[in-house]
Design a protein around this nucleic acid. Structure first.
Lengths: 413, 413
DNA sequence: ATCTATTTGTTGTTTAAGACAACAAGTATC
DNA sequence: GATACTTGTTGTCTTAAACAACAAATAGAT
């Protein structure tokens, strides 16, 4: 079970903080499970039935959860009530890309209920992306039904994000440098804005809702046209580092090769496992992952096989290192790495084991991500949801209809 | 502030667990600071003065802490009482090596009050080490003053330890494979026995008492005659991995070199940064770290300098990767790496920055460890102390005088 | 030396919230 | 339809932290 809260603290606990903690715990379980029986909440939390009842009542009054009668019998005894997130609680997910910016609406129950992709001129500036995002958000808010509560905005950034103030430090593909993105978007929208690295958010999403559900130690590797990003969950918590820049797994040097990656570092995983190289070989241009996948799957020539195996070898070297470093339970692959993996799953696993210590790799499993195109949308939405969940009774939810004077708060993960 | 507790849990908090948590918090602060004012405890924990008073009283009744009048004025107002760990609370630290086993006694206040190093024949078996350790422990217990309370035994293992059951999975230097060390030593001593990887424990010690005090994100790298080990603290918690094998930083591949490390992996940090190579060059045999350090410091020949810089280059490659992966606040070096670093500190830092992303490395600091020969002794003792601190009122402390029927519990980190 | 302001420790009371117990409600099995 | 079983609800109990008032100990001002 993965959650971002729970950092070490020397604070003591008053009875008030106990209530907050228990409200958080219940709301988190409801959110992570999408729906859950009251009886399950009591057994998982270890709290008394009456206590859970009181907590749910409070969350219901806050408009965060709803109860319903569970359909379908569950055995002897009075049937337990089903608790689910209130569909009126939503977050915006903003995903800037090189040629477009996508804004989505995600409910606390994990449904993507709206999506709008705005094509942008080549090399949009951060200001462009902020303006377009704010416009789409304003438009979408008009269509919300009355009573909708907005937790905030989560932004997935293909680059390095400083946690403390939501500044985009450097996003190579977009060419963005040192942009106070969170502050600006917050001013435009009046909503709380949270930023996160795209791969780290993908990792979070897979750990909470995807193929690594309930996994406490996992390594996530994502490769797209912009290079290789990564994320790590250790001990149930995202590895963020001192400033939030941790998880740059693609820039790990594994070879003496002089090939440079997109950040100019030689011999790194990103410099050796390249989507471009495969596209070149197959003579594909601006292909989708699906098209590339089809080509890889149908590869018959020994030259193609050799190229793919070379990439698998390099990938394995990187994964071996990560196994030695993190001893993960699961490795999750996403982007075109899924195609490489599927081409010869046993080979990749064998090579990873060969390059790592027997103890560290003996139980590791490699899997493809399960969330597909929702990966970053769900991941980014988790940022505002986390903030809400960590203080359910005091979090400042915003209404659908923007009031001019409202001002958001800036933060990120 | 670094602590090992605090893993994510979906448990709720009853008033009982609040008390446990607050007792733990206070005891942890007392332990980590060696001594601390009551007024500081109230401000750090945020608890009410009267609550802190009650908590300390309970810890005092448990024999875990003592209060004393603080000497030296601290300003206006009634002087606050000093709280320190009870000197009667101790743990044993066991450090098996290739040719000897060292048993030490550490107080809850972090003092090493006894040490006994037993030379052993070449290639001792785990059983030999267990027998010798148990004998020394039994002997030492006799000399304890009445009222001494023993938290347990911490063992630093130069190899891979399975957390769940305290089994040594593989310790290459010692030639130990799959040994149920914790269970056996617990049976012999009647004490709770906890195992940990040596480098991970060193990391823990430096993070709590050494040069990385109050650092939440740090990477620790230790190099001795047996190779390179590592440890990582992220978000204030030790990175342990799914089974406890995480932190094998020395086996990270950084080059295409075919040189093998002590575990047979090619091109790894451990295969390139080798104490042996330096000893060979300086024509030293079985030298101490101090002797090697003196040679490195006084190196004048260009051949020597080149060799040292080559090792620094390789070290930098490894550290660059770790910076990209963990974005640590501090990198701590120990073993003969301290000599390499001191030979040219600016060079190493410059090379590390060159090989890593600017954002991730912009604030990183490299330091030598501060604990010297106490490193593993203190680190191992933290394991039983952690267990005690996490449940102060219910932990089963053992008395100095062994009673035959007592049986310990086995666990590890 | 005395008085005042300040900080800390102590003690008795209040308050918040989880535990507990008893009962009601709803389902499956016999 | 009776019984066993599980869950939800309600009122009471218990625990522990907060709070308030006072005592103790110090520094500085008069």
């Amino acid at each position: 079970m993965v959650s971002n809260t729970g950092a070490i603290s020397n604070r003591g606990q008053s009875s008030d903080s106990v209530r907050q903690h228990n409200l958080s715990t219940v709301l988190r379980l409801v959110h992570l499970n999408r729906k859950i029986l009251r009886s399950q909440l009591t057994s998982i939390t270890g709290l008394n039935r009456s206590t859970v009842s009181a907590l749910i009542t409070e969350l219901e009054e806050l408009g965060l959860v709803v109860e319903s009668e569970s359909q379908g019998s569950s055995g002897v005894g009075r049937p337990s009530l089903m608790v689910s997130p209130n569909e009126n609680v939503v977050a915006f997910s903003v995903n800037p890309e090189i040629d477009a910016t996508t804004v989505s609406v995600v409910t606390l129950s994990g449904q993507v209920v709206a999506r709008s992709r705005k094509l942008m001129g080549s090399h949009p500036s951060p200001e462009d992306a902020i303006r377009v995002s704010a416009e789409v958000i304003a438009e979408m808010r008009k269509s919300f039904r009355p009573g909708t509560q907005i937790a905030g905005v989560g932004v997935s950034v293909p680059g390095q994000v400083r946690t403390s103030d939501g500044v985009i430090r450097y996003a190579p593909q977009l060419g963005w440098v040192e942009s106070a993105f969170a502050t600006a978007l917050s001013q435009e929208t009046g909503l709380n804005v949270f930023l996160g690295n795209d791969a780290s958010l993908g990792c979070l999403a897979e750990a909470r809702f995807g193929t690594a559900k309930n996994v406490n130690d996992l390594v996530f590797l994502f490769a797209g046209s912009g290079g290789i990003g990564g994320g790590v969950v250790s001990n149930g918590m995202t590895v963020g580092g001192a400033a939030g820049y941790a998880g740059e797994l693609g820039h790990m040097k594994v070879s003496s090769s002089g090939r440079l990656d997109y950040s100019g570092l030689p011999g790194t995983l990103e410099s050796l496992v390249r989507r471009e190289d495969l596209l070149d070989f197959f003579k594909l241009y601006v292909a989708t992952d699906e098209e590339l996948d089809a080509e890889i799957k149908s590869s018959e020539s020994s030259r193609a096989k050799r190229l793919i195996h070379d990439q698998l070898d390099s990938l394995a070297e990187g994964l071996s290192n990560l196994v030695n470093i993190f001893n993960p339970e699961v490795i999750v692959l996403a982007g075109f790495l899924t195609s490489l993996f599927e081409f010869d799953p046993d080979y990749l696993l064998a090579q990873v084991k060969k390059g790592s210590l027997a103890a560290a790799s003996e139980r590791v499993v490699i899997r493809n991500g399960a969330l597909g195109s929702d990966l970053l949308v769900l991941g980014a939405a988790e940022l505002p949801f986390d903030a809400l969940i960590s203080s359910p009774s005091s979090y400042n939810l915003k209404s659908a209809y923007a009031t001019r004077v409202e001002s958001g708060e800036v933060d990120s993960r």
